[in-house]
Amino acid sequence: MEVKSKNHAMLSNYEVLGLLKDIQAGRGQKKPNKFQTNLATITYETIKCLENWPCAHHTPSGLSAAMKALAPYGLTAAEKLQLINLCPSSAVEIQLIVEESEERLSETQIEELLDLLATHIPGPDTQNEQAEEEEEEEEDQGDAYDVTDASA
């Protein structure tokens, strides 16, 4: 085995959750069979963990809008990734994530960051989020219907 690039790209929690859910549902990659107990274990445990984190409520459109909105603040890629993964809700969390935030961001900018994160990638208790979840549920049901059709 040879490692060609140790840090080829950073992934957001949302992308990892998507991949693992696909694996569990047998989309793209096959479902773990009885020989792949390790994959089944890590998939189950990671999904269980990620579903309690903010990434469970993200949407692709919300994330890309948030990335665009974060662009003008001069943050590094790692800082933006952490902002999206952790969805901070208070100024003290932003000061932790952004290095030397006192010099790089003003207080109003920190407030703006909190606002834009709250609008683009809202938490679980927002109305439009619920609507999107319902859409997803409908899609899931559609998938289930396809499967039964195929097996019939």
Partner: peptide, 25 residues
């Protein structure tokens, strides 16, 4: 499929030295 399966059998839920904990292909 066979390649995917064997890569997942080999790496999933294992730590590769100086790389980290492997999750999935």
């Amino acid at each position: 499929d066979a390649i995917r399966e064997s890569l997942n059998v080999k790496f999933a839920n294992k730590v590769v030295y100086n790389v980290g904990l492997c999750i999935a292909l």
